[in-house]
Design a protein around this nucleic acid. Structure first.
Lengths: 207, 207, 207, 207
DNA sequence: TATGAATGAGGCTTCATTCAT
DNA sequence: TATGAATGAAGCCTCATTCAT
């Protein structure tokens, strides 16, 4: 993906417009170019100077946003010590997101989806070979950090762990949605349970 | 949802056409009425004798299919003894599905989605209150069967378990996708690992 | 037009359904066969046993209704003595109609229209040569009655009078619409003014 | 209504296309967008850049045309002296219109109609409060001109006169339709009779 | 480079009419 | 004779994309 620093202002405006609309609850598959460019404050034709079609705009915008989000999350996470604390922090972020706009959670969903977003995902899978699947990448770094570079488990185990951690986070999100009104105390309890579960699974796998 | 036995032939034709198209990789959000009715072998107008609009056709078709699938899976599962065997059987089915058309997996995704399918899901959530969310329902029954009615864990634990089991299945599906070409032996190994993990988690939670 | 006594029950049901729907404010040009037959309590196909198409149903229904209305009005009018009293009575009926559903007024409009109802009017003009324009016919009889058969004015004068009387009635209807809320006393005054005007014009023409 | 001078060329093309089609005998309620835009020489989608839907196109086109027609008629009429001459002139124009395309007469009908044109009329009635019902407005000006501003009759009388004059004109149009083939001499006679009748009524009312 | 007016393919939906029962 | 399920032509409208300015 292009370097953020070199991102042209028009491209950035388009990305941010899409993310904003998405955050406001818009369905990615019914988003229109008119909405996007209008929100971005540019002409409709201009968008086509930077992207070949609508799908590319949306897919790249998603990618850009997830990248931003993951980078930020990873950086913040570094301030925490140990997997447990890091996961606690992550779940806090997930929780806030869901409470606010459910946006990142829906993004994860969109990116996990291998068929609904059609062409958009094809493009993502293409770029994936270049840069890695940004979300998985972050989790992978998390795992490596925890193990230390000298004690790296086999690639298969890493792959398995990535999926397990991701599915646990999704799991937490789903539970939150189900019990959206539950009290702070209960939520604290649940968060701890989740992190315990995640850590237990992690240490069992890496032995 | 309507009784399957009383399903009119035209409705059934429409449901099956949608599922077939979906199975062939069609994107639910870009499916056209023309495609559906053509595949169903009926006139375009006929579809509107049975459904009020396109979204209703698709949502009910999905629901119908998941219902059919879950009923069938649950029934078959009863022939197996114990959670481990049942999960092994389930993972086999998941595996076959993914190898074939990825269809049920995508259905789970579609049904889990809380925003992309828009109105369709609103309708599903409405019926959910009447019949239970078919997929969760099946998992719930599975849990109850395993515990025995006299040893039922608290509702919170059941809720947590449902999510954990579902997330493990999704987890398995994702791993398979990543390693789609891996050999039978490895796949057998992975399946066992997953089932072990599921059972371990299960018994830890219900104590 | 067919003799009312020989009108088949199905035909009558269709006529009455259309008139009822029209009375409820339906737009004749957007009325559907489904609505009509449903209201008439018969099958959709049955309507096509009696009429060649939808337009024929509507045109004949209008014709039938106007015929009924005019016959009834003319009969009732005979109980009154002299043009002035007859016109007073007629305006009372017009007034009631407008207050209730505006239906007959709209029918007059529909029948006067030479282009909006398209084919329907072509059919009416066709029958017109056989039976006379039912509304004009009634006014013509009114004029003849008033003059006495021995003192009949020239055909041209009759023609002119017909139009003048009709235009005065329409005029009264329009005024009522404009002043829909005016008090009974004012309305009585207006009615008298109108009748005076009609009579004055009438006697001036026939000399 | 928008200022004629500022009317965009596309809007004007659409208005003129509709009026032309109407003049050719098309039924307003069955006019299609495809016909309109094709006649206007623009793309179908373009029409929707300027109007929110088909009904708006037609209603505004009618309004535009009546406005143009009334403005022109009133201006020409000013060259004539006195009510009688003005009415003679007007009837001449009406006559020509009916002989040519019957267009304005049908427009009057369409604008008088309070139910058939549905939404279109709602829009017209809305603008009516801003600009006055263009046709009535013209007649009103005619009346004021004739009385002189210092001798204005009561508003009620003006209202009554407007309706009377309009209904007489309609009356004349109807007579022409009935006797479309009558000779020039007869028509001249009738026109005079009508104008006499109109003037007599006028002076009786204003006293 | 930036624009947005113009386009037209294509989608959804309605409904008059037919025809097998 | 009566029916109403089935049909598909046809209409309205949207919106991704282009291109002249």
């Amino acid at each position: 993906m292009e370097n953020t620093k070199e991102l042209s202002p028009k491209k950035k405006a388009i990305y941010e417009a899409i993310i904003e609309l998405f955050g406001q609850g818009a369905d990615l598959s019914t988003l229109t170019v008119a909405e996007i460019t209008s929100k971005a404050g540019i002409g409709k034709g201009t968008a086509y100077e930077y992207f070949s079609d609508k799908d590319e705009m949306i897919a790249k915008a998603i990618f850009y946003h997830v990248e931003q989000f993951c980078n930020g999350l990873y950086e913040e996470m570094q301030k925490e010590n140990g997997l447990y604390e890091k996961m606690m922090f992550t779940l806090h972020v997930v929780e806030k997101e869901i409470a606010e706009s459910n946006c990142v959670f829906r993004l994860i969903h969109a990116m996990t989806d291998n068929s609904l977003l059609g062409k958009k995902m094809q493009m993502l899978e293409e770029t994936q070979t270049q840069h890695g699947f940004i979300l998985r990448d972050m989790v992978r770094k998390l795992i490596i950090d925890e193990c230390g570079e000298d004690k790296m488990p086999s690639e298969e185990k890493v792959e398995y762990l990535i999926i397990c951690l991701l599915s646990k986070m999704v799991c937490y999100g789903m539970l939150l949605k189900k019990t959206i009104l539950m009290q702070d105390k209960q939520r604290d309890e649940l968060r701890k349970t989740m992190c315990d579960g995640i850590c237990k699974e992690f240490y069992e796998v890496i032995g």
